[in-house]
Every structure is written in structure tokens, then in C-alpha cells.
Nucleic acid binder design. Sequence first.
DNA 1: TACATTTGTACCCATAAGGGTAAAAATATG
DNA 2: CATATTTTTACCCTTATGGGTACAAATGTA
Lengths: 68, 68
Amino acid sequence: MSAKIASFIKEKRKQLKLTQPELAERAGVGLRFVRELEQGKQSVRLDKVNQVLALFGSELGVIQKSES
Amino acid sequence: MSAKIASFIKEKRKQLKLTQPELAERAGVGLRFVRELEQGKQSVRLDKVNQVLALFGSELGVIQKSES
DNA sequence: TACATTTGTACCCATAAGGGTAAAAATATG
DNA sequence: CATATTTTTACCCTTATGGGTACAAATGTA
């Protein structure tokens, strides 16, 4: 599950010593979005997630579970 | 950019010899969603993307660009 | 303990995502 | 070539994302 994205973002944000409002501003997204994202809301928009991840030099990609 | 997700899905779908309507039905999403997804629309919902990827035994995850 | 800071929840509202469907365009097949 | 199949585009509509904001809850610190 991509709920991992939530914790990843929260962790990265704290690594950079940013508050949610600061992250929201820098990423160019709303504060509410950041909060919902870190709380694991699944029905968020892909582009917004990428906007936030871009701040960390990361991006969203497809991960294989087992299938070859 | 996660535009790669688009081509990934299209490729995987063809590997399984599925049409877009078939994929949509199996994934439990709308046909239009599948189409927009394969066309690289960025503002799609994360949960829907995962619904489709689940069919391939895949999931969305965070990819590191360079940052360690 | 009291206080400050950060995070979570709840509200209104505009915009658009996504479902359905139908028709046009593109692609595959004989 | 003609024909069948698949994909794309465009229209309707309902729902809810995401922005702003304010307040409550949680967390950290002295």
C-alpha cells in the first residue's frame, strides 16, 4: 500500500525541520493537503503528491511486488 | 515524472492482452479513468492508480532521485 | 504544572475528477 | 481496399478533492 508514502513524507519533512505549513508553502500545495497526505489519505491527487515529493528529490514510481 | 506510470500500465495491460474496457472492469475503475491514466494525466487519484496497479501485482512507491 | 508550538479535525466553497455514454479517429485484420 | 476492433475525444452529471480558515487536540519544553 502506498500508505508508506504518508510516513515517508512525514519523515522527510522532519528531517528538513519543516512544519506542515512550511512544507505546504514550499511545495505549492495547500496545508490541508499536506495534512491529509501525512495521515495516509488514499484519494489524493498524484500531481500534488509529486509536487511535495519533488521537494525531497523524490518521485512516485511503480514498484513491483513479485510479478516478473 | 510519474508519466512513466502511464506507459507502464499500458504495457502491462497489453502483456495481459486486455483492452481498456476489460482492464477498467477488472480493476473496478471507470473506462475513462484508464484512458486518462494511460494518456499520462497527472491529476489522477492515487487510490485509483493503485487499484489498477494491483492487477499487475504492482504498487506505487516513492523513488529516490539522488538524495540519500 | 503552565505555556508555546505543531498537528488534527471541521467548516464552506470552487473546481475538476471520474463514471456513463456516444461518436469520431486510429489501429488491426481479412 | 473494406471491415472489425480498439482507442480517443466530447458531452452529460454527481461527488469530493483541495484551498482557505478557525478551533480543538496533541506534542514539546521550561
